[in-house]
Simulated assay, not measured.
Amino acid sequence: MEALKIGIMGTGRIASVLANTMLQMPQVVLMGAASRSLEKAEEFAARFSIERAYGSYEELAKDPDIQLIYIATPHSEHCSNAKLCLENGKHVLCEKAFAANYAQAKEMTDLAEEKNLMITEAMWVRYMPMAKTLKEVLNSGIIGEPMTLTANLCYLVSDKPRLVKPELAGGALLDVGVYTLNFASIVFGDEITDIQSSVIKTDSGVDAQNSITLCYPGGKMAILNSSLQVLSDRMGIIYGTKGYLVVENVNNFESIHVYNTDRELIETHIRPEQISGYEYQIEASGEAIRNGWTECPQMPHKATLDVMKVMDELRRQWGIRYPFEA
């Protein structure tokens, strides 16, 4: 099987993790890296032994040898960057949050389908073996009917300018809250009957921390919290009619502990060894491209769009609009 030729757009921290991961994957070739600064691109390329460095995103998108482009730019740039890639015949793996809003996300997936190219959101937990394990545990009925879940994801990152700038679509929701929303989506699906929320804003006007309550058919409920200002335990807990389970780290499921009605530990699942966890979304992208799919089954377009709709509604409730939104 011929190795998948990949380029990286953006050269920040996540791009570095992805680059290091790909170097350990024989089924892919990390061929190019692009930044708006040639110097940064060349430094990044040298660090990871990447053959080609580009001083503009256009050069990467137009390289005929590149098949898949991983987009690691700020949220505000995802839509224009993805369209540039798709217009030049490139498949796209785009960092979360997939776009700044639903309209942008729909534009991106529609264009991919029109061009018969694959585009998928790099919501890495969706692609991991532990996501499948979680579904299997829930489907086994060991905790009965899941009725309630809680999830939190909070980091001490308010000092990072990108995360508090409205013009870059900053805020806790798009950066870390999107993980809690995806956790709820994995467990309860995307048919939401009610959305309630509270927010604390930064001085710049984006959400510093938020609390979200989602209701689902059948009386199910998810309570989600995210923040840029504090450190949390990152736990996801699913409460059922016959017990409950605890997922350690909703940002990269490390373990699943299952408890019965006496709160006794009855089952444990530990995450398998991984390079970084990012390898699974790259493998899934390669599989989709080989099969001629425009999406990955692990992260279908509908799931991405449904989560984007929820985030749009939350920002509407909070009165947060990004400067570039019409």
Rank of each mutant, 00 (worst) to 15 (best):
K5R: 14
R315M: 15
P64Q: 11
M235P: 00
Y280W: 15
P26Q: 08
Y155M: 14
I71W: 02
A105Y: 03
N116A: 10
L305A: 03
P272L: 07
D63V: 08
N116V: 00
E145V: 15
N252W: 02
P129W: 05
G89P: 04
L265I: 14
G12H: 05
L245D: 02
K62R: 15
D312M: 11
F183I: 01
V17K: 07
V250D: 00
F44N: 00
G141E: 11
E283A: 14
A19C: 07
K115R: 13
L86A: 07
A208I: 00
G240I: 03
M235W: 01
V250P: 04
R271G: 00
T11M: 00
V17Y: 09
Q317L: 12
T294N: 13
G243E: 08
Q298F: 00
I8T: 08
P129F: 08
N139R: 13
V157L: 14
L138V: 06
M108V: 14
A15R: 09
S255N: 12
A34I: 07
M130G: 08
V17M: 12
A46R: 15
H269I: 00
T304W: 10
R316S: 12
L23D: 04
Y57F: 15
I14E: 13
K90R: 07
A99G: 04
D65R: 07
G10F: 04
E295N: 06
H301Y: 12
L18Y: 13
L173E: 06
W124Q: 12
N101P: 00
N182L: 07
E264A: 13
T73E: 05
A222N: 08
C94H: 00
D312I: 09
V17I: 15
R316Y: 07
K135A: 15
E39D: 15
P297M: 10
R126A: 04
L60E: 09
P64H: 08
G171E: 01
L111G: 00
R263K: 13
C215Y: 13
E121P: 02
W293N: 12
L173C: 06
A72E: 06
N251V: 12
V187S: 06
K165E: 14
K115P: 03
Q229E: 14
G170M: 06
Q274W: 02
G189H: 09
V258D: 02
E283D: 11
M9G: 07
I282S: 02
I270V: 12
L93E: 05
E283G: 00
L245F: 10
Y259D: 01
I270A: 07
M108S: 05
N251F: 14
N81L: 05
E121G: 04
A3V: 06
G32V: 04
I192G: 03
L174A: 06
N139M: 03
E77M: 10
P217M: 09
E264C: 10
K165M: 14
S140L: 11
V230M: 05
V125S: 03
S227R: 04
V310G: 09
A151N: 05
A326N: 13
M311L: 05
A208H: 04
A34K: 09
L86C: 05
R321L: 12
I256M: 08
D110Q: 12
L23I: 05
G7H: 11
P161D: 03
W318M: 06
N81G: 04
E136W: 01
T148E: 13
T109F: 07
I320W: 10
A326K: 13
I6F: 02
F188L: 09
K165I: 05
G171D: 04
A112H: 03
